[in-house]
Design a protein around this nucleic acid. Structure first.
Length: 703
DNA sequence: TGCGTTCATGCCGTGATGCT
DNA sequence: AGCATCACGGCATGAACGCA
């Protein structure tokens, strides 16, 4: 909105004295690096007539200074070495923003804002951290002056902080100097059963070693509710110990070398003479996966800073799994383990109606307009709901399907944003929607990031090359620095940031209307180069994962990767020339597979893999390969491979190779149709020429 | 035709307070 | 001491419309 106004604003601009840029962070912002906008660097250069040195200093309002290394690649500059420590220390993944103000001499003044755009209280690295050489591996500078600030207060979010686990002694010492605070609440005894006894016993043992701590058993109301009431006795002791009776307290949970902090609001209810922990408590519960019956030992570390070390004693062994594991991940795995992914698909093999969408901002935030040709052809009877399935995930997303009769177009609306969230879709991600059942309007959605940001420069190069192969029209204007941070050359380098780049675009101030128009032209031409593919199999390049982004940032990637790993693992476990097909596609274990039986006898001295066609393999325009095979035999990453059927007719198929994921894409579905492959057919892919990447494909029909 | 924006509406999370 | 209820604010959603 503001950016829109800015773009259209023809008025003269006042250029501020200092060069600043604002970077928004999201939960999936990469932790390891941060790109500096080129246009910003240009401004700095103009103003200070100096290049950035390799080491830059980030100076915080609290006086702390961090040293971060800047790396350059193809004219792009990145905060890299040391950035991750900075990122984690200030919990920047919690949807905050950072304001960088260049002071010259490679020094930046940095201000950090939380998600509500309020400047945070800056956590101070504790003395012991410094003394013990925490982060010695990084070019982190010591805080220049200790400040009396809270350890963490970033809007209730947690902070991951790598630190040596050595504070126990110090903490204990601190504790011992204080008088014991409380007894164990009675309820704990009475309600303790089973695993809770264990938790309680452990907690009690802990308390006997740390008499100043107080224990609280988690009741369902603490878990489900949004606050924790402390007993009057605890409260009474707290009241005498604490410097104030309300404010933000920091709860710290240490695990191994990791420390996590939560900011929780604590209030004293005078009427009830009790403290309660409220705002932020919920996040603490969720972040630590607390369950009813778990016991928390609160140890007051600093009565001025209101810092508590919290030791969690799990009621059950299951619950003792380390905090911080994403619930979704766990669920996902469980689901996969319990269900046959086959159930995800409606059986209508003959239908292959697909369209591709490149997700734009509105699609991420609001709704997704379907390809109109597709809508007219398949949705004109005005369905109200659709089902979305993602390969490898058992969840079905039900989305509202609204057909606008007047404009003959349809959109996914209610539930769509949930799908976006659940699958962590980003701007510029591409989705191929394959309509598998016209009765229920079931779609299989194949999702892929357009391309990737890569911390590994070599990989980046590869991807740049890959992208260039298919998107020359997009990449043709990389020389213009003024807007080089947009869809142009960043396709290859920075697309994990596309959403961020979007933001970055918003933040760029155009010095002239011409510049703006030029940029807009490029933008629109870029967009026009990405067409919907209705009812067609030529899906363009779409299956590109995000190698540079941690896998857990992308649920779909994780899932796909899990399957790939599963297959690859099984592939690896099978002895060569055994009777078991080398492709251990989990979907193969469904019986009734005559083809499989016949394929077992396939053997070759050439590298090969055997793959049973799953429903999606003959429906979706891609085939995922056993990654180990691809890694071993296709590590030169050819852009295309040739598949030869029994009649010797070659089919050129685009090959993709990304982070732990490899497969065939463009041309694959044509090959499927050409050979009339059906579900449960089995193919042996024999690599007969590893220089020209030619496969002989031996097909074993199931019928 | 595709995409973006605005706005009204309803839902839900959160915090405060009351009741048992 | 624990639980229930209510009010409020923020956010998601859906519809309509504008722009290119």
């Amino acid at each position: 909105m503001t950016s829109l106004c800015r773009k259209k604003d023809p008025r003269q601009k006042f250029s501020p004295t200092n060069c600043s840029f604002l970077r928004s962070m999201s939960e999936d912002s990469p932790t390891a690096y941060l790109k500096i906008p080129r246009i910003y660097l240009k401004k700095c250069r103009e103003k200070y007539e100096k290049e950035l040195s390799k080491d830059i200093h980030l100076k915080l309002p609290c006086g702390t200074e961090w040293k971060v290394e800047v790396t350059e690649h193809k004219g792009h500059f990145w905060f890299e070495k040391g950035w991750e420590d900075f990122f984690k220390f200030y919990s920047l993944q919690s949807n905050g923003s950072i304001d960088f103000q260049y002071e010259g001499n490679s020094r930046f003044k940095v201000k950090i804002y939380d998600k509500s755009k309020i400047e945070i209280d800056y956590p101070i690295k504790s003395t012991d951290m410094q003394e013990n050489g925490v982060n010695d591996h990084s070019p982190l500078a010591r805080p220049q002056q200790p400040q009396k600030k809270k350890e963490a207060t970033s809007s209730g979010g947690e902070t991951d902080l790598s630190a040596n686990k050595d504070e126990g002694g110090k903490s204990s010492t601190t504790q011992r100097s204080r008088k014991p605070t409380t007894k164990v609440p009675m309820r704990m005894d009475s309600s303790a059963t089973g695993g809770e006894v264990t938790a309680f016993q452990k907690a009690n043992e802990f308390k006997s070693r740390n008499p100043s701590c107080f224990l609280v058993t988690m009741h369902s109301s603490y878990i489900k509710g949004h606050m924790l009431w402390l007993s009057t006795e605890i409260s009474k002791n707290m009241l005498t110990n604490l410097s104030k009776n309300s404010g933000n307290v920091s709860l710290r949970v240490s695990e191994g070398s990791t420390r996590r902090y939560w900011a929780v609001e604590m209030k004293y209810d005078i009427e009830r003479a009790r403290f309660r922990l409220q705002s932020g408590w919920n996040k603490f519960v969720q972040g630590n996966k607390l369950n009813a019956g778990d016991v928390c030992g609160f140890m007051l570390i600093d009565k001025i800073e209101l810092l508590f070390e919290v030791n969690i004693f799990r009621r059950t062994e299951v619950a003792t799994s380390s905090p911080g594991i994403d619930e979704d991940d766990v669920d996902d795995k469980d689901d996969r383990g319990l269900h046959d992914t086959n159930d995800d698909y409606a059986a209508n093999e003959n239908t292959h109606r697909s369209f591709k969408k490149v997700l734009q901002k509105s699609a991420i935030n609001h709704c997704l307009w379907l390809c109109s040709r597709f809508s007219q052809k398949h949705l004109s009877n005005n369905p109200s709901n659709a089902e979305l399935h993602v390969p490898g995930r058992t969840t079905t997303w039900h989305v509202g399907l609204k057909y606008e009769v007047g404009r003959k177009r349809a959109k996914f609306q209610s539930g769509w944003t949930k799908f976006v969230r659940d699958n962590n879709l980003k701007i510029e991600d591409e989705c191929v929607f394959v309509l598998t059942d016209e009765n229920t309007f079931s779609f299989v959605v194949i999702v892929a990031a357009k391309s990737t940001l890569q911390p590994d420069i070599d990989d980046a190069n590869d991807n740049i090359k890959d992208d260039e192969d298919s998107k020359n029209e997009v990449d043709d204007d990389t020389s213009d620095e003024d807007y080089s941070d947009d869809e142009g050359d960043d396709y290859g380098v920075d697309n994990a940031h596309n959403d961020e780049e979007e933001d970055e675009d918003e933040d760029i101030e155009y010095s002239s209307p011409q510049q703006l128009h030029k940029r807009k032209r490029l933008s629109s031409s870029t967009k026009s180069s990405i067409k919907d593919v209705g009812a067609s199999t030529s899906t363009g390049q779409f299956l590109k994962q995000r190698p540079g982004v941690p896998r857990n940032f992308h649920p779909i990637t994780v899932t796909g990767n899990d399957i790939a790993l599963q297959r690859a693992k099984a592939f690896k476990d099978v002895k060569p020339h055994s009777d078991v097909p080398r492709s251990m596609n989990p979907m193969m274990a469904r019986g009734k597979n005559k083809a499989l039986w016949r394929a077992q006898h396939f053997h070759s001295v050439e590298p090969y893999f055997v793959h049973a066609m799953h429903h999606r393999d003959v429906l979706a325009p891609f085939l995922e390969l056993p990654f180990d095979f691809a890694k071993k035999h296709l590590d030169k990453r050819p852009s295309h491979v040739k598949l030869q059927g029994s009649n010797g007719e070659p089919w050129s198929v685009k090959f993709y190779f990304a982070d732990e994921l490899a497969g065939f894409q463009d041309g694959w579905i044509e090959f499927v149709h050409g050979l009339n492959l059906k579900e449960d057919d089995v193919c042996a892919f024999e690599l007969i020429d590893d220089t020209k990447f030619i496969f002989d494909v031996h097909v074993y029909r199931n019928t």
